[in-house]
């Protein structure tokens, strides 16, 4: 963001300071005209008053529009709090920006009325106008950043939720994969499967892909890497739930799955695992 100088901001700052209450009344009145903000709540007036106070303080100290400057620190903190509070109340980012923008018209008429005799009022108003615009945009950025952080957190939580590793038997662990596998998710699966091999002393790990709609080259490679890593640790992987379409895809793509054991169903994989572990399953009724 470029840094612009504001040689005449002081003129506006003085006017805002001297006619603070009057300006506040008019700001609230102009706010009432914007339908969505009519219910801005009992906190609208104190919030507006705080914004004016910080604006005057910032303009008095700053000769430039530099939102990152130390003189605007209190303003930044206030607007972060305000934006997030309003977002929690259900206001959109635009509402919060409009709340600040609603100050512009009353401020223009106040400055024209009070400072009309001073030829510099128009230029000063334009400069303060820019500052208000910047802060209005800033509130939108805050909400945006907050939302992105929430989305990232939820993605992470979903990743963890969607990859349970189950201990099926002594020394046999399984991970049922459901849904589309992207690179990041496959990596998470890979890591939790390998960790569970150590934790459960599992010599056999079953990767069940019954719930995976398609397997592309990248996913197949990830699966094969998991198998290779498990082997390095001393465990054997069995891939189960390979549906005909996936088998066709794997062959058509020319993916070499080499010596990896594959089974059509989880039950078949478990049978193989039992056999490898030297376990025998018998029915009691016969």
């Amino acid at each position: 963001m470029s840094v612009q100088s504001l040689p005449l901001a002081g003129v506006a700052a003085t006017i805002i300071k001297e006619h603070g209450d009057e300006l506040l009344d008019e700001w609230m009145a102009s706010l009432a005209e914007v339908a969505d903000l009519a219910q801005a709540g009992p906190k609208a007036r104190p919030d507006a008053a705080e914004f004016l106070r910080l604006l005057v303080a910032g303009l008095a100290e700053s000769a430039q529009i530099d939102l990152q400057g130390t003189e605007w620190r209190a303003m930044r903190e206030f607007l972060v709090e305000l934006s997030n509070r309003q977002a929690e109340w259900g206001f959109s980012p635009v509402d919060t920006a409009e709340f600040l923008m609603a100050l512009k018209r009353p401020l223009a008429s106040l400055m024209q009325r009070v400072g009309g005799s001073d030829g510099r009022w128009l230029e000063s108003w334009q400069q303060v106008n820019q500052v208000i615009d910047r802060w209005a945009l800033y509130t939108m950025e805050v909400v945006q950043a907050n939302r992105e952080a929430t989305i990232r957190r939820q993605q992470q939580e979903m990743l963890e939720l969607s990859t349970p590793v189950i201990q099926l038997w002594d020394g046999i662990t399984a991970v049922p994969l459901i849904g589309t596998l992207d690179s990041e998710r496959t990596q998470t699966v890979m890591e939790s499967l390998l960790t569970s091999i150590v934790e459960n002393h599992a010599e056999i790990a079953i990767i069940d892909i019954t719930g995976v709609p398609t397997v592309d080259t990248l996913v197949a490679q990830h699966l094969l890497k998991t198998v290779a890593a498990a082997r390095l640790m001393g465990a054997e992987c069995i891939i189960s739930g390979v549906r005909p379409t996936i088998a066709q895809t794997i062959v058509h793509l020319g993916i070499d799955i080499g010596s990896v054991a594959t089974k059509a169903s989880l039950a078949d994989a478990l049978k193989l695992a039992f056999r490898r572990r030297g376990c025998k399953v018998e029915s009691c009724n016969q």
Partner: peptide
């Protein structure tokens, strides 16, 4: 006894 992180990295 190869650790998971080591195995992933080697692969």
């Amino acid at each position: 006894g190869m650790q998971p992180a080591v195995a992933i990295t080697l692969v």
